[in-house]
């Protein structure tokens, strides 16, 4: 079994003269959480679409779990869970029915629907139509669908979208436990550094379609601290600490008063 879960070699995607992904070489190790960090338009989603065979590379190659991704070849996706761009579902179907479609098409046992509902705390909304869910619960449904068939690899595009701070912490802990306890590889993209910094073992920074830096979280943190020491004023550092304090206080207060219904 190769120890690389995701690999790209000289990967390029051009749209009508615009290069969205440019000679991308990427290796994501099995069992790690890889943060794919970049600004809007950096090429994160285009890369994820190519990993999932939704679009064809202009050149280069993609390998997922040891299988090269070729047009229309979908067998490997029985081992991959994914969330691409916005969390979407069939709006006329309930949460349970949406998950049952995923169960049927991945050949998973019946109990996996209830298990994934419980895992993502979707119980109160299980019989609610997906079109009536809040943004955060749509995101939970998309994550439940991604996890339902116990994949070896999770490819998540902005997984914290729409989640409140408590939800973000919860999903962060869930992904960490999947990686630590079950050896699931997580490839997650984000444009929010804090989200990646809390979770990823390694972080790749993509800009204008190119991987411009790749480091472990600790290495990146050290570089960031050194940079901040030089670049920030004491007032800016104070403001950053205040933001963290406020977030922690908010979480503590809302944990004391858990929500009783959907937002």
């Amino acid at each position: 079994m190769p120890d690389t879960a995701v690999s790209t070699r000289a990967l390029v995607k051009r749209y009508r003269g615009v290069t969205a992904v440019d000679s991308l070489d990427l290796d994501v190790r099995r069992g790690e959480i890889y943060g794919f960090l970049g600004r809007n338009g950096a090429g994160k989603t285009t890369t994820i679409r190519m990993l999932l065979g939704l679009i064809r590379p202009s050149s280069g190659e993609v390998t997922v779990l040891g299988r090269r991704i070729l047009p229309g070849e979908t067998n490997v996706f029985s081992r991959v869970g994914f969330l691409v761009e916005t969390a979407t579902a069939y709006p006329n179907l309930t949460v349970r029915e949406n998950l049952d479609i995923q169960r049927r098409l991945t050949g998973s046992p019946t109990r996996t629907v209830a298990d994934s509902i419980a895992l993502l705390r979707l119980g109160p909304y299980a019989d609610r139509r997906a079109g009536q869910l809040s943004l955060g619960n749509k995101q939970r449904l998309a994550l439940a669908r991604a996890l339902l068939h116990a994949p070896e690899l999770l490819v998540l595009d902005e997984p914290a979208n729409g989640l409140d701070p408590a939800g973000i912490v919860e999903i962060r802990e869930l992904l960490r436990s999947l990686a630590d306890d079950r050896g699931v590889t997580v490839f997650m993209s984000s444009h929010i550094l804090a989200e990646v910094a809390h979770l990823a073992d390694r972080i790749g920074i993509v800009h204008e379609g190119r991987l411009i830096e790749e480091s472990s979280r600790d290495e990146l943190a050290a570089k960031a601290r050194a940079f901040a020491t030089e670049a920030y004023t004491s007032e800016e550092r104070e403001q950053a600490l205040l933001t963290l304090d406020l977030e922690r206080y908010f979480l503590a207060r809302t944990d004391e008063n858990p929500k009783s219904g959907d937002a």
Binding site: G53, L54, T74, V76, F77, V84, T88, A89, Q102, T106
Partner: peptide, 15 residues
């Protein structure tokens, strides 16, 4: 239009 095509086409099912 419901943006579910991306979910459908990356399933382990021949398109």
């Amino acid at each position: 239009s419901d943006a579910t095509a991306k979910n459908m086409l990356a399933l382990p099912v021949g398109r």
